Simulated scan of single mutants.
Amino acid sequence: MIPEVDKEMLLASGTSKGVWTLHTDGASNVKGSGLGIVLKPPSGDVIRQSIRSADLTNNEAEYKAMIAGLELAKSLGAEIVEAKCDSLLVVNQTNGTFEIKDDRMRKYQERLQVVLRRFKEWTLEHVPRDQNNEADALANLGSSPNRRVLLRSRGAD
């Protein structure tokens, strides 16, 4: 999570005005599930998060990453967000292009809609995987069972 000092600095700097850009990705493999979030406030700073999650399907991880990223943006005062992800399913179900047939996906979509209603304006667009590399790398880091070791060794340097 974002340290309180950093949150206060972002809120005090008035960065909530303007468009925030959010890239998310979810990863699920035999090692676990992870969420990757790259949030760019109008100030130009970049907030990156890698989150380990309970075992999820890939589609569930994609939804959870988008929800977590939007909740982070809102908690920092964002009013307008341009969200981008490489999941056609999440983008097309959210934009109404794909029908939701699975009850589990319907629950994630309902939660996502609740979060989106908290913004003054929002867009969600599909981006090719090669334009979502950073969020993808963070999601893969989150799905790694060695994540704690990697983070500890970085902090020890």
Rank of each mutant, 00 (worst) to 15 (best):
T21K: 14
E82L: 06
S13A: 15
R117A: 12
D136I: 04
P42F: 03
L72Y: 02
K74A: 08
V30W: 00
I100T: 14
L10E: 12
N140G: 08
E121D: 09
A83Y: 05
K7V: 04
V114R: 05
W122M: 07
L141M: 13
T57N: 08
F119E: 11
D45Y: 08
L22G: 06
E121M: 05
R111C: 10
S153D: 07
S43I: 04
G155R: 14
D103F: 13
Y108Q: 01
G32P: 10
K120E: 09
D45L: 14
S87L: 01
N132L: 01
A139C: 03
P41Q: 10
V91C: 05
I80G: 12
E4N: 10
L151D: 10
K64P: 06
D136Y: 08
P145D: 04
K31P: 05
A139D: 04
S153P: 01
K84R: 14
S33Y: 03
D136L: 03
S143I: 00
M105K: 02
K17H: 10
T94P: 11
I80Q: 10
R152L: 12
L22H: 10
A139V: 10
K7T: 01
R48G: 06
I47C: 15
F98Q: 01
T24V: 02
L150F: 12
K120A: 14
I47Y: 11
K17W: 04
T24F: 02
A65W: 02
L11I: 15
N146C: 03
T97I: 14
S87P: 13
Q49E: 15
T94F: 07
M1G: 02
L76I: 00
S13K: 11
E99D: 12
V19W: 15
N146Y: 11
P41W: 04
V81H: 05
